[in-house]
Design a protein around this nucleic acid. Structure first.
Lengths: 195, 195
DNA sequence: ATAATGTTTTACAAAAATGTCAAACATTAA
DNA sequence: TTAATGTTTGACATTTTTGTAAAACATTAT
């Protein structure tokens, strides 16, 4: 009942997101979600009509959230390097809380018979790619296809968190030690992508 | 019937791996797998007794495969940089064919009540981390915790392929264009991890 | 107070996924 | 050939998961 009273609907959604994005339990049933939320499973149907609907809403939310997170940082009217530092901080912090958000999206896309997911606004992306190119011309970052630059950036931020269960055991790291490594990475990534 | 006659058991396993690792359809049912293999679903029980058993075997195979792939490259008695070039080539090529292998592993680990997965041989890892440190001392690569070095390396190789459905649409890339980018990355990654 | 509306639960129904069994079929060995 | 063994399938049973309906409960407005 604790968090419950911001509304049951929101509670169910948040619980589903926690299970999928934070815990990475992609095979969870409606019963699992209801239990974790401490409500009856029927409520899930009352508010979302079907499991598919709930998944669709969670999916859409995640896509939108991903999009607007990118927007916020790319928009900001600040020097490029500062923007990148900010992006890395925001993104890694979010990824620490919800490491499997993108994994969930990809799995849904791959599993779906036909998913409709949003087109991303081209203008904003193009302008951002241009900025990256300018930085290359200015000699601040290595010259390459700016798409590579973006893929490198996201890879370095996201992948270690996705892999954390394997990395923790492979490198014999405690939760705490692993968390510290990830925090270290914020600066490390910055060093890596700038000359 | 085409690939069928290296034995039905192998066919089923290979089909399961294709569906999970190549297509990323992590929610597939036994029926899905049987259909894709062109056999009756009962055969899957005849050879593997239960879905869980099949999953366990596929899981174990994937873990072993991952382990021995690492071994092969780390063992090789060659100069460090050459070893890394080889590792990147082997790993990226494999990841192009089976981009979701690690995602599958992680999802299984997270979903399982209690998974037993192999301890990795410590000796080999330690010696490899030492080699990385030597390269840092020699000034060939940037100084950092060698675990970061390894995480960087795997991130840069694996993550873009995991994300390909999103990247293709975000960057408006055809399958072919995307594939070319990935091949480009082999050299790019090498440049990034060496000074 | 009570009607109207919204929320939650219980009990049940339906569908989907997994598992079993026995019979049909194929292959090999005696 | 035919018994023995291994493979495959179809029909059925069980379990798991999802979905529905009606009643109980709560809240709000009149």
């Amino acid at each position: 009942m604790a968090i419950k009273d911001k509304g049951t609907e929101q509670l169910i959604k948040d619980t589903a997101k926690r299970i999928f994005f934070a815990e990475g339990k992609l095979h969870s049933t409606t019963q699992d979600i209801a239990n974790a939320a401490g409500v009856s499973r029927t409520l899930l149907h009352y508010y979302f009509r079907s499991k598919d609907q709930l998944i669709n809403i969670v999916f859409k939310d995640a896509m939108d959230e991903l999009g607007s997170r990118l927007d916020n940082v790319m928009d900001a009217d600040r020097p490029f390097k500062e923007k990148m530092e900010n992006l890395i901080d925001v993104f890694v912090t979010e990824a620490m809380a919800f490491p499997y958000q993108e994994t969930f999206l990809i799995t849904e896309i791959n599993s779906a018979n036909s998913v409709i997911y949003n087109e991303y606004k081209t203008a904003k992306l193009k302008s951002f790619l241009k900025q990256i190119e300018s930085e290359m011309v200015a000699g601040n970052i290595e010259t390459m296809n700016p798409i590579h630059f973006m893929m490198n950036l996201f890879s370095l931020m996201a992948y270690p968190l996705v892999m954390s269960p394997l990395y923790k055991q492979f490198f014999k790291l405690s939760d705490k030690a692993f968390k510290n490594l990830i925090i270290e990475r914020k600066k490390l990534i910055c060093k890596m992508i700038f000359k």
